[in-house]
Amino acid sequence: MAKPAVILVGADKGGVGKTTVARTLLDYFNAHQTPVRAFDTEHPRGTLKRFHPDITDVVDVTAVPDQMKIFDTLGSAQAKVTVIDVRAGLLSTTLRALTDIGFIDSARKGQITFAVFHILGPSITSLEEIAETAAVIGDANYFLVKNFINNTTFFDWDPDTYNSYFNRIKGAEEIIVPHLSEMACEQVEVASTPFVTFVANKTAAGEAANYSFVLRGYVRHWLGNVWGEYDRVKLIDLVAPKKESAVRQQAAG
């Protein structure tokens, strides 16, 4: 039986696309038939929940009862992968709370697979976040996500400075989320569906929709590139190694 996996998606800065990345992850795991659940820490409103209502709960990650709801159920939940979309400004706080409850230790001992998707913004503040986060994540699988979805440029970073931060974290990997046309983004927002559902031209209720073929094409192309990045870093191997190896054995014939 696969051990539970927790993926934290966060940044201390707002507006860098955390929820977008969390949505692509949920779509990715669903496409790989990997059962997944999500927690949306945009308490009490919830943004992720709007797109994936069936598998998302809105929680206050700073409150103990909600921490229990997430972490005490890791072993018993049907979904072995848990994605937590951490609200802006709460990444460091959440990581400290995880340390306090012994979660980071469990991950270090190999009882839980733990990954952090740290979404970077364009400013130097993001680089400082890396150093701060690195200090508390222990042996977690650390992914630095450069999110270009909103045409963010990272040119104001000096590559040497960036690398000096990046190299502080052993085994850190970089993931690029490419740009997606603003209009395509907006239409998916308006549709309030997972990206995959939009591409399939379906409403949230599963009925036939009439979205623009061009916009669906752009979203499909973009999502394919994002998933290509997840494939590159072997995300499925990380969270569901047994299942994947079985698939590979089957494919090998």
Binding site: S181, M183, A184, S212, F213, V214, L215, Y218
Partner: peptide, 13 residues
């Protein structure tokens, strides 16, 4: 631009 692309390709298909 994307509006023009939608106007053409959506019609073509």
């Amino acid at each position: 631009d994307i509006q023009g692309q939608m106007a053409l390709f959506d019609r073509l298909v």
